[in-house]
């Protein structure tokens, strides 16, 4: 076939009709329920994934820990751009993620933020790029530039954005919304189901490993040692 056409066909954002869809395999997320809902049965590498979430602590990062664990074997950088806090190295080590691969980037302004994301995506030295875009609004073309930078690579690229960004269009082929703790809603998925709620159960948690997700069944602790909240 013509090389130019081949090139276009290779791109993740080219619509191919129904026939050749199954060919694209995603990277297993580590959660069976989510895998079964995702087109390609896993994270679409070489695409931007938007994760819409308000506030930390709903488990947005936990979603990617199994992936980080797998990618850690590649020995490339896992870049955190404008992260809200510091990833806790002992936890990463306990999960089998090499904390030496984690790079924290703190750009000073919006322009540098976009530049750093693009650089990280375009360079072949990263296996994962997590970027926190914050509350600023980004135009479609700016996000499209990131999507183009990710296209054709094998990088797991995740953009964390606030939930209100879900009202606007975005070029990312996969957009997920973190509704509640451990409950995802697939807002948009190219070639797959949309508006599906996914409840991530505990059955995929690895026994014996430090769990982030689910703490033991919640029983309101009323131990003797619980201190009184006296001022």
């Amino acid at each position: 076939m013509n090389a130019a056409i081949d090139h276009v066909m290779q791109r993740q954002d080219t619509w191919l009709g129904r026939a050749s869809r199954a060919a694209r395999q995603g990277m297993p997320t580590g959660y069976h329920k989510l895998d079964s809902e995702l087109h390609g049965n896993g994270w679409p590498l070489g695409n931007t994934i938007e994760l819409l979430s308000d506030g930390n602590g709903l488990g947005a990062m936990g979603l990617f820990l199994p992936a980080m664990e797998q990618l850690s074997q590649q020995g490339r950088w896992q870049v955190f751009i404008a992260p809200p806090y510091i990833p806790y190295a002992p936890l990463l080590e306990a999960r089998g993620i090499d904390s030496q691969q984690v790079l924290l980037v703190h750009p000073q302004n919006r322009q540098d933020l976009l530049w750093s994301i693009e650089q990280a995506l375009r360079s072949s030295t990263c296996s994962a790029v997590f970027a926190w875009l914050g509350n600023t609004t980004f135009s479609y073309s700016e996000l499209r530039k990131l999507q183009l930078a990710a296209a054709g690579t094998d990088v797991l690229s995740v953009l964390f954005r606030p939930r209100q960004a879900g009202h606007n269009h975005a070029p990312a082929p996969l957009r997920l919304e973190m509704k509640e703790y451990r409950r995802l809603n697939i807002l948009k998925q190219r070639g797959g189901n949309q508006y599906v709620d996914v409840n991530l159960g505990t059955e995929d948690d690895i026994p014996g490993q430090p769990q982030l997700w689910e703490l033991p069944a919640y029983a309101p602790v009323q131990h003797a040692q619980t201190p009184a909240f006296s001022a």
């Binding site: 990833p87 002992p90 924290l104 750009p107």
Partner: peptide, 15 residues
């Protein structure tokens, strides 16, 4: 990254 953003802006983590 370091040359554009400055040395302080790029960090690594360790345990």
């Amino acid at each position: 990254l370091q040359n554009r953003l400055g040395l302080q802006s790029v960090k690594k983590i360790a345990g």
